[in-house]
Design a protein around this nucleic acid. Structure first.
Length: 645
RNA sequence: GCUGGCGUGGCUCAGAGGUAGAGCAGUCGAUUCGUAAUCGACAGGUCGAGGGUUCAACUCCCUCCGCCAGCUCCA
């Protein structure tokens, strides 16, 4: 009998007979490993446990608790879900059903619209499929056979997918269910132990809004029930931090039906946080050589024609005035760049003037379509820490570095450091009307940017078709409590607009040269940042950012005068302080201050009044005991000064 | 913009073809109290808006507005 050599990750080698499956190898190592196995990896390629080794190979047993193993488990869960949906709605057409971070989904084209109760029905059916413990079998068939198969099954989306594949495709069967799939999968449906369907929503076929809207069901699966439960609890906890709920409860912002969609109203507390952020940012920018401008919120159409916004960004703009009626046509600004460029062009610039660093705390207006708006994260009017650095090509890298340093300082100070990453956003050469049409400039700029990123030794992801219409971006991405990714800060290199605006400087040799522009934000959009901060701190802002830093709580009416005195003292030192003079018990006042996430409560009774002290209660640590007022003032001042978190 | 869900006093929610209810918040009164809810009374809603069906609509139908999740798009 032929023997082959199987080399394991630890370097050891096993002699097994030809045709031995991955599972058999796992069993020979240890029964526990075999039980935990989800799939194998042969020479780097993931394979089913049923895969038979036919020649010398390197083999790794992939257990279900690893990233790859979990993906296999979830992919199998997606198949089981599709199987269940087909049992309940035999006419359903299957689209795709991949795994995603933390779960899986499957897209269906069905007449019936899935409602929450349907998810329970589907889960019941999945439970039966799991109980039946159907073997999951891989088959390699020809393209023609696959087309024939899916024609018989009435699955046009699968046919479309097969048509784009090579001569041989793999399918997986479980009972009467069959799906086009690369695999690998678990060996049988019975191995699925802990899963949950989460929600149903619409999704375009192949993410293309000109193609049919399908129905997507999201779900997740884990190895153990305990892990699933823990994940569901974690989801629940995350939702409690949702800025859109917390921000309203804490009276940071509100919306009004009559004001309109995507137009949040910042209430005094929310406005206070933004004001503090703005002061922090503007001071920091000034320290780093930026000059602040204040430019109009709107401009004539002609300005946007020069910038290219009229050609590439028109859908995103609010346009005022009807051209057909002979009105003057203006547009609210969606970006500040064209305005600051006008300032640059106000006079002849010398290389000695460069780099010029313009910044502006800019309200911007973008006509987002109706389904996009979300709390403070996606809105139609927002304030951005916009800035443009105009420099020579030689200065580009140094300026870029300075921008990154500022951003890192800001993020660090705000405590926005977890689950944040950089994304190098490039253009898509196939989308001509979306981008300024100058392929050479695009490629050159992107190479330039990539080199800078590499010189800065930055870690980043790359994304196609995420660039601005005029240039590539380095985006700083963050995730909200729903796990959704958003750009919070962006840095862009722009060779296009300096040319369109004919920006020049006089070089040392007297020649006229073209500068380069870096578009950048330092904190991004203030409203969005506020949303991120609410979610990060669950509304309990660090003291320096808290809209109310101290609440004074007198115990009885005879302490009111002293309470007012304490308030006055703190107020005169710039501390944001309130006093609760209501006729309520101290427990009640504390509870309210606590729910409002006020960092410090000063409880004042007879003893405090007598000794000129305050009983300090911290929102995090509870009762801290009495301390001289002076000491508390020093302590909180230091905490504010250092922006302690 | 698309798919689906939702819209009842400030908030959380109950109710239902015959014309609205609770808790919290609010107001007033009592209580003057030591670290997460004192007691009582009162007040508060053209049931998101408009149109239609009906003897009768908060409830059924249509349109619009807004909110939520996802898709597309994007800071």
């Amino acid at each position: 009998m032929d023997e082959i050599r199987v080399q394991l990750p630890d370097g050891s080698v096993r002699q097994v007979s030809k045709g031995t499956t991955v599972l058999e190898v796992a069993k020979s190592i240890s029964p526990r490993l075999a039980k935990a196995a989800a799939c194998g990896r042969i020479n780097g390629q993931l394979v089913d446990l049923g895969y038979a080794c036919e020649s010398d190979v390197e083999l790794e047993i992939v257990t279900a608790d690893t990233e790859n193993g979990l993906a296999v488990l979830r992919h199998t869960a997606a198949h089981v879900m599709a199987h269940a949906v087909l049992r309940l709605w035999p006419q359903a057409q299957l689209a795709i059903g991949p795994t995603i971070t933390n779960g899986f989904y499957y897209d269906f084209d069905v007449d019936h619209a899935f409602v929450p109760e349907d998810l329970e029905r589907i889960e019941k059916e999945m439970d039966s499929i799991i109980k039946e413990d159907l073997a999951i079998v891989r088959e390699e068939i020809t393209r023609e056979e696959a087309l024939q198969l899916f024609r018989e099954k009435g699955q046009p989306y699968k046919i479309e997918l097969v048509e784009e594949l090579g001569d041989s495709v793999s399918i997986y069967r479980q009972g009467d269910f069959v799906d086009l799939c690369l695999g690998p999968h678990l060996l049988s449906t019975g191995l699925l132990k802990a899963y949950k369907l989460l929600n149903a929503a619409g999704a375009y076929w192949r993410g293309d809004n000109s193609r049919p809207m399908l129905q997507r069901i999201y779900g997740t699966a884990f190895v153990k029930k305990g892990e699933l439960d823990a994940y569901l609890v974690q989801l629940e906890e995350a939702r409690k931090r949702d800025h859109n709920k917390l921000g309203r409860e804490l009276e940071l912002f509100m919306t009004s039906d009559v004001v309109g969609q995507g137009l949040p109203l910042l209430m005094p507390k929310g406005a206070k946080v933004l004001q503090i952020l703005q002061r922090f940012i503007e001071d920091e920018e000034e320290r780093r050589g930026y000059m602040h401008t204040k430019t109009p919120f709107m401009a004539k159409k002609e300005l946007y024609e020069i910038s290219g916004h009229w050609q590439h960004y028109r859908d995103g703009m609010f346009i005022i005035g009807d051209e057909d009626k002979g009105d003057e046509v203006l547009a609210l600004r969606p970006m500040t760049c064209p305005f600051q460029f006008q300032i640059y062009k106000n006079r002849l610039r010398s290389y000695r003037d460069l780099p010029l660093r313009y910044a502006e705390t800019s309200p911007l207006f973008r006509n987002e379509s109706s389904g996009e708006m979300h709390g403070l994260i996606r809105v139609r009017q927002f304030t951005i820490s916009e800035g443009h650095l105009i420099c020579t090509l030689d200065q580009l890298e140094e300026e870029f570095r300075g921008v990154i340093q500022l951003i890192e300082y800001v993020m660090e100070t705000l405590g926005l450091t977890d689950d944040i990453w950089f994304r190098f956003s490039k253009w898509d050469p196939n989308k001509k009307d979306k981008y300024i049409d100058n392929p050479e400039a695009w490629e050159l700029t992107q190479r330039q940017m990539k080199r800078i990123l590499e010189n800065l030794e930055m870690e980043y992801d790359e994304a196609d078709d995420e660039a601005a219409f005029y240039g590539p971006k380095l985006d700083i991405q963050a995730r909200n409590v729903h796990g959704k990714e958003d750009t919070i800060i962006t840095v862009q290199i722009d060779f296009a607009l300096p040319e369109r605006f004919d920006m020049t400087y006089v070089a040392k040799d007297g020649s006229s040269q073209r500068p380069v522009v870096i578009h950048r934000t330092s904190i991004g959009c203030y409203e969005r940042t506020l949303a991120m901060l609410i979610e990060k701190y669950a509304g309990a802002f660090p003291v320096w950012l808290a809209p109310v830093q101290v609440r004074v709580l007198p115990i009885a009416e005879r302490h009111h005068v002293y309470a007012e005195e304490v308030r006055e003292r703190l107020l005169s030192q710039g501390v944001r302080v309130e006093v609760d003079l209501r006729n309520e018990k101290i427990g009640y006042k504390i509870r309210e201050a606590q729910l409002q996430k006020i960092p410090y409560m000063l409880v004042l009774g007879d003893q405090e009044m007598e000794g000129h002290t305050a009983a300090v209660r911290s929102r995090q640590m509870g009762d801290q005991g009495a301390m001289p007022l002076q000491d508390f003032e020093t302590q909180i001042a230091e905490e504010i000064r250092t922006k302690a978190r």
